[in-house]
Simulated assay, not measured.
Amino acid sequence: MATVTLQGNELHTVGNLPKINSKAPEFNLVATDLSVKTLNDYKGKKLILNIFPSVDTGTCATSVRNFNKEAAQLDNTKVLCISRDLPFAQGRFCGAEGIENVEMLSDYATGAFGKEYGVEFEGGPLNGLHSRSIVVINENGDVTYTEQVAETVDEPNYAEALKAL
């Protein structure tokens, strides 16, 4: 279990982020076209998992915009923006914002991703949502970088995530 804060108030997750140099846990997430995406769909690519509570909050939306801008310049890399938002809300956001360089994926159907990656909030006002986190995975499926943002309203460290590629 990890402890982070929301405006200074403690929140806990169901586990911890995957360990550096471990194999990334498998996932089944729903894309905005309602297809199911798995880790295997990205085999041979570098991945940045931008994990957050909801695209309908300012900091979450900012992280998607920032990674969208950076992703356009990355070779053999996909940025996956993952939340419990419905795929319809994710698609609406991307359409309204002109987001085209990242993939939005939803854990709404089972919540299994949040548990496997240790980011699901347990209790508190964000119960069931994901904590703001970054996981970088190399072409071999190994975790090379993680960050669980200590204060939920803060942005992740974009530079360190990109450097880990």
Results as ranks from 00 to 15, higher is better:
L129R: 00
A72E: 10
S63G: 04
I20K: 15
P87N: 09
E160P: 02
G118D: 13
L29Y: 08
S63D: 12
V143L: 12
K78V: 03
V143K: 09
G141R: 06
S63A: 12
Y145T: 10
V149Q: 06
A150Q: 13
G98H: 03
V4N: 02
G111T: 08
A159Q: 14
Y117V: 03
V4P: 01
N157Y: 01
T62I: 09
N40H: 14
S106M: 06
D107V: 14
I137G: 03
L6D: 04
F52P: 13
G123M: 09
I137P: 08
I48S: 00
H12Q: 12
V64E: 04
E26G: 07
K45E: 00
Y117M: 07
V153K: 15
T144C: 08
G15S: 10
Y108C: 00
K46W: 03
G114N: 15
N16P: 02
S54T: 07
N66K: 14
E139P: 06
F27S: 05
T146A: 09
L162Q: 12
P25Q: 04
N9R: 15
N16D: 14
I99W: 02
E151A: 15
G124E: 14
D85G: 05
E151H: 06
Y158V: 04
I137K: 06
D41E: 01
L162A: 02
V36F: 01
N68T: 00
N50R: 00
E103M: 00
M1K: 11
T146I: 09
V30L: 01
F93S: 02
F113H: 08
T13C: 12
K115N: 11
T3E: 15
L165H: 12
I48G: 02
G58E: 07
T59F: 12
V119I: 14
N9K: 15
N9V: 13
S133Q: 10
I134A: 02
C81R: 04
P156F: 05
A31E: 04
V36T: 15
T144L: 12
N140E: 13
R84Q: 12
E70Y: 15
G98S: 02
K163H: 04
